[in-house]
């Protein structure tokens, strides 16, 4: 119990710190690298919550593929520290921070007051979660899964089409 709390709070501290640095780092590459650390920390939290396979997928997909793409694109542009990293206006900035804080407060209050409605766990998922996940994915959620496949195909074609736009080093005149 004590170790559980210590583990959770240290992970939470690092996650919040990295997320904070993601927002405040002036250099976009630094913020991308902090976001990578956030993703890895989230994978650890997922593992902690018993979602072992999801934690592995988080490492592969987010930390290993999506964020590598982000960092690569940022390096390709060779962006340095930006002059205008943040939006202008002190008043509107404060308003934005306050609204984000209010949103978080609503989440806090909502989850705090309504968590008792949740049913107590019927049965904890057994050890072989990944196998059950696969079976569920190919039976109950088959249509959603197929739709995702179609979506990915469309996105792949769209990305190729968008990135062949004129200009840059690969222009076709």
């Amino acid at each position: 119990m004590l170790w559980e709390a210590i583990g959770f709070y240290s992970l939470a501290f690092f996650l919040i710190f990295f997320a904070y640095k993601t927002i405040t780092a002036i250099n976009p590459i630094h913020s991308a690298l902090y976001l990578v650390l956030t993703m890895i920390g989230l994978a650890a939290v997922f593992y902690d919550l018993g979602a072992h396979f999801i934690a592995g997928v988080q490492l592969i997909v987010y930390a290993g593929a999506v964020m590598v793409l982000f960092v690569m694109v940022l390096m390709l542009f060779d962006l340095r520290a930006e002059l205008r990293a943040f939006s202008r206006g002190l008043f509107s900035g404060m308003l934005k921070i306050i609204s984000a804080g209010l949103l978080a407060g609503i989440f806090f209050a909502g989850s705090d007051s309504s968590i008792a409605i949740l049913d107590t766990p019927a049965a904890a998922p057994s050890a072989d979660v990944s196998r059950q996940l696969g079976i569920l994915l190919y039976t109950k959620y088959l249509y959603a899964f197929e739709a995702l496949g179609v979506l990915l195909l469309v996105v792949a074609v769209g990305v190729v089409a968008v990135s062949r736009i004129k200009g840059g080093t690969h222009a076709r005149h």
């Binding site: 919040i16 997320a19 993601t22 984000a100 949103l103 978080a104 989440f107 806090f108």
Partner: peptide, 10 residues
């Protein structure tokens, strides 16, 4: 959930 809310607002 609190952690999730904080990360979401960030």
């Amino acid at each position: 959930l609190f952690l999730s809310a904080i990360l979401f607002s960030f």
